[in-house]
Amino acid sequence: MNVLRLQRFGGAGFLLGFAAGGFFDGILLHQILQWHHLLSGMGAPPFDDLRAQIVADGVFHALMYLIGAVGLWRLLRARAALATPEAGRELAGHALVGFGAWHMVDAILSHWLLGIHRIRMDVPNPLLWDLLWFALFGVLFIAAGLALLRRHSRVAPGLYAWAAPAAAVAVLAAALAAARAPEDAAVTVVMRPDVPATALLNQLREGERVVWRSASGDVWVLSGVGNAGWRLYGHGALLVSGTLLPAGCAAWTRT
């Protein structure tokens, strides 16, 4: 296998695994379990505001989209190398290393150096949860990846022929899931500052209700909307959680 091609090949697997690790973190911890948001540890204004938390999570996911896209591009450029017998094992190993590397970087940088969030913010001993997550999803995944990358692996290389399409599908599926809310989940809506509160209230349908709203009327939490929040973009919404339209975060940031 050409050395340069192998380098691009390995880099693609690492980036795809890294992006998958970020999506795993964002989907599971930010959205499903809601143990923390990206800036949950930043207690001072303006970072304690719900708008800032939403924007930060959106920017985080946008970064994972970018990293995943670069990984897919590099994989496409090195696609000729996928025909070699050891290709699947190499790609799977680098992807596992990338997945574990994300959790190590997140723990060291976000949890311990910057302190912008912890794995669990509502427990008396957050360090214990940090260490457990670091070991399970950081150390173990990197160890598994390095074991696959050993030249004399006892596992037949052909068993990993699925690695390239599986890595691409996993990142794309995670990216879509990160932007989609469960049907019964509450939906957060960020409105343009120049839109009156009645504009949103007039759009509520039967079964939809307001759970919470900010004093200024520009951030709302609604229940019963499910994945029908698309229509709110046409009535002054900059961001509707659970939709696949990323422009809302960018629009709010510009404002």
Rank of each mutant, 00 (worst) to 15 (best):
M1D: 02
V3F: 01
L6C: 03
Q7R: 15
R8E: 09
F9C: 13
G11N: 12
F14V: 15
F18M: 11
A19M: 09
G21I: 14
G21C: 08
G26P: 03
I27L: 10
I27N: 00
L28K: 06
H30Q: 12
L33A: 10
H37P: 01
H37E: 01
L38M: 10
L38S: 01
D49F: 07
A52Q: 07
A56E: 02
D57E: 04
A62N: 03
L63Q: 02
M64D: 01
Y65K: 02
I67Q: 00
A69C: 04
V70Q: 00
V70R: 03
L72G: 11
A87E: 06
G88K: 07
R89T: 05
E90R: 15
L91Q: 05
H94D: 05
L96A: 14
V97C: 09
G98F: 04
G100F: 06
G100M: 06
A101F: 15
V105C: 10
V105N: 01
L109E: 02
S110D: 11
S110C: 12
H111T: 02
L113Y: 05
H117R: 08
I119W: 08
R120I: 01
D122G: 05
D122K: 07
V123E: 00
V123T: 14
N125Y: 05
L132T: 02
W133V: 03
A135H: 02
L136W: 01
F141M: 10
F141W: 08
L146V: 15
L148S: 07
R154A: 14
P157F: 01
A161V: 15
W162Q: 03
A166H: 08
A168I: 13
V169G: 10
A170K: 01
A173I: 11
L176Q: 00
A179M: 14
R180P: 00
A181S: 13
A181Y: 02
P182L: 06
E183M: 11
P193C: 08
P193N: 06
D194G: 12
L200T: 09
L201N: 07
N202A: 15
Q203T: 15
R209C: 01
A215L: 12
D218W: 10
W220L: 10
V221T: 12
L222C: 11
G224Y: 12
A228K: 15
R231D: 03
Y233V: 14
G236V: 11
G236F: 05
A237G: 10
L238G: 12
L238T: 12
G242R: 08
G242W: 04
G242L: 07
T243G: 02
A247V: 13
A251D: 08
W252L: 12
